[in-house]
Write a protein that binds this DNA or RNA. Sequence first.
DNA 1: TTACTTATTTGTAATAATTACAATATCATA
DNA 2: TATGATATTGTAATTATTACAAATAAGTAA
Lengths: 149, 149
Amino acid sequence: MRRSFEDMKILLRQQNIKLSHHRLKVLEYLAKHHIHPTVEQIYDDLHKEIPTLSKTTVYNSLHALANAGLVRIITIEDNETRYDLEVEPHGHFKCERCGIIFNFTIDIDKISTNELNHFEIREKSVYFKGICPTCLQQVKDNDYWRIGI
Amino acid sequence: MRRSFEDMKILLRQQNIKLSHHRLKVLEYLAKHHIHPTVEQIYDDLHKEIPTLSKTTVYNSLHALANAGLVRIITIEDNETRYDLEVEPHGHFKCERCGIIFNFTIDIDKISTNELNHFEIREKSVYFKGICPTCLQQVKDNDYWRIGI
DNA sequence: TTACTTATTTGTAATAATTACAATATCATA
DNA sequence: TATGATATTGTAATTATTACAAATAAGTAA
């Protein structure tokens, strides 16, 4: 259920979240760039367009959007929190070499377990790490096998 | 395959990782306390016993042990990295109210997907968030339903 | 045991991400 | 357009983590 930008606006109104200019810009950025950006990336890019934008506002906006259920916070590793539009459940694969995060579809309900019967589950995340095909190929070409990174 | 402390020592020797006193203490701590501690917790507790221990050493030890494959770094949320002994694959459930992290067993191979056929997968993590039974009960008792936290 | 080599540990200082907060600006609605 | 509520800014504080050089300890071989 990929939402249109207009649908998202309606959702925000329903939840009584004000559609401020900057907030919409952050949302729009995520809708346009499916790159799981960091706050830094979002700030740097939007700052060019909106010189008065502050990093604090980016944080505030992302948190507001996350609370509204429109944005998902991805923390695969510490020191780099990333943000993604909330769409249908999917897993994230992070390449340890180039750092790119790939989506992959999973049937997340298969993972449920009866050990958690009495728990209220609100969010399920699946994170894989490894090496992506492009990097695997480069490593092969360079003929070195220390894939320490 | 829960490893005994002795097994772990052998593993370390095999990988040419020196069994220094502090390093072993950190490992022992994790083996004794299955609470997914933060660096802070490990440091605070061990510091009582070993007054000369520095926090840097805790970081160093944990990273060395993680590279050796004995310790798993858990980053469910930013701002709190936690550490766990590497045992058979399992998922982590974090209660959003009390912060406790619970283990649960999963058949992690069920999650694999043909979309990642050309990826080299090195690590699979499954993180759930929600409310644990104890907290659910307390919320009920207190008769308030704003489970914002 | 002793000396030697190498790796670990320490402590301090730097870095970087995130948050707190008060002042200011903007929005939504009547 | 006036009003009250909320968003945004900017600075400063906080916190987790890392860098690095000096001191220390471990492992090894004579």
